[in-house]
């Protein structure tokens, strides 16, 4: 990855996350956006289709749809069809409960969609403690349905303290189902902030996970674990935060943010009801500040070239300091474990 070109600024994102609705039929404890009811004044169908046209015009390669549960939007298939008609690649993050054979068959007609089904444990009890009753079977049913289709499908698991010991079993489950495994980082935003202390992986779990990732290079992480990247995985993905440089987030009401974990007024880069996407991407002060963000406090770290200070969103949520360095980076995890061990030895 050439940071030189990324930091100089691209003409548009390579991909973006579009949270098409806040509506969700589940109440997952780690939900990054506290999804439940639809947001007041979500983008209309006409506005959504206009945005698709703009993103295509701007050269955005891929749209990653999330929410909320995207299929809660009655016009979601229409929005997808508009993307595919323009040759735009799409990825849908879904809880799987609303995937029907008819929808899968319809989506199978294009080769431009990939689907991630959320499953937060290899054990039913682990998954349902996070996502709610009935979610495990619903996700497995959706995964089985998708595995019989040509749609590239993955299990998407958010790494938490509860499921960290089940990652290998999830990998095996994915293999049995004929899909792949993708693991995402748990961040303290939305309901995830309310349940942070209970669900956050321990430093030991994060270090173990980093080592496991090094041995399992086929596991995708959506680049959300670059703060933990081992030397073995260097070159497989990003080594810096891509927010406002390679990607960004569009919220349900048309507000644009650097990333999905920073959807607040403070980080609003613009509103698509007032400006075009291109105007926001090119001129937003928030985006300009993210492109110039340097985590100086991390520059002396031996791992700086591997993560460049890690995830600013986690630093913001945990330390209220966007420039403060990722509190859960590999170096800090290792240091924290060593300090705990030293304390234990001294006691």
């Amino acid at each position: 990855m050439s940071n030189r070109f990324v930091e100089a600024g691209l003409s548009s994102p390579v991909n973006l996350t579009w949270e098409v609705t806040l509506a969700c039929n589940l109440r997952c404890r780690h939900c990054l956006s506290s999804s439940a009811e639809p947001a007041v004044d979500e983008l209309s169908t006409a506005e959504a289709l206009e945005l698709v046209a703009q993103l295509h015009q701007d050269g955005v390669f891929q749209i990653n749809f999330g929410g909320g549960e995207p299929f809660m939007r009655p016009d979601f298939m229409q929005i997808l069809a508009a993307c595919h008609a323009r040759g735009m690649m799409t990825c849908i993050s879904t809880n799987g409960t609303l995937l029907t054979p008819e929808r899968v068959e319809q989506l199978s007609r294009t080769r431009l969609v990939a689907i991630q089904v959320s499953l937060d444990g290899a054990q039913k009890s682990t998954c349902e403690a996070i996502r709610g009753q009935g979610t495990y079977d619903a996700a497995i049913n959706a995964l089985e349905l998708l595995a019989r289709s040509p749609i590239p499908t993955s299990i998407n698991t958010v790494l938490t303290a509860d499921n960290a010991d089940e990652i290998h079993a999830l990998q095996q489950l994915a293999g049995q189902l004929g899909v792949t495994l993708r693991i995402s980082r748990f961040r303290p935003s939305g309901r995830g902030a309310d349940n942070w202390e209970e669900l956050r992986p321990s430093p030991a779990q994060l270090v173990a996970f980093s080592a496991w990732l090094a041995d399992n290079q086929n596991i995708r992480t959506g680049d959300s674990f670059f703060s933990l990247t081992s030397r073995e995985r260097q070159g497989l993905g990003l080594n810096l935060c891509g927010a406002a440089k390679l990607t960004c987030c569009v919220g349900p009401t048309g507000k644009v943010y650097p990333c999905a974990f920073l959807q607040s007024d403070r980080f609003t880069a613009g509103n698509l009801r007032q400006n075009s996407f291109k105007e926001i991407w090119d001129n937003s002060e928030i985006f300009t500040s993210f492109r110039g963000l340097r985590i100086h406090s991390c520059e002396d770290c031996q791992r700086f070239d591997q993560c460049h200070g890690g995830c600013p969103a986690v630093a913001y949520h945990l330390k209220d300091d966007i420039e403060g360095g990722d509190p859960e980076c590999l170096e800090r995890c290792v240091t924290s474990i060593a300090a705990a061990n030293a304390k234990e030895s001294a006691a």
């Binding site: 990855m1 070109f5 691209l10 390579v14 050269g59 390669f61 891929q62």
Partner: peptide, 19 residues
Amino acid sequence: RVRQEEFGLLFYDSRGPSL
């Protein structure tokens, strides 16, 4: 996919994804 940037061509592979 591929597009023009100031420096030249930017290629995107959705299978990684990689650039």
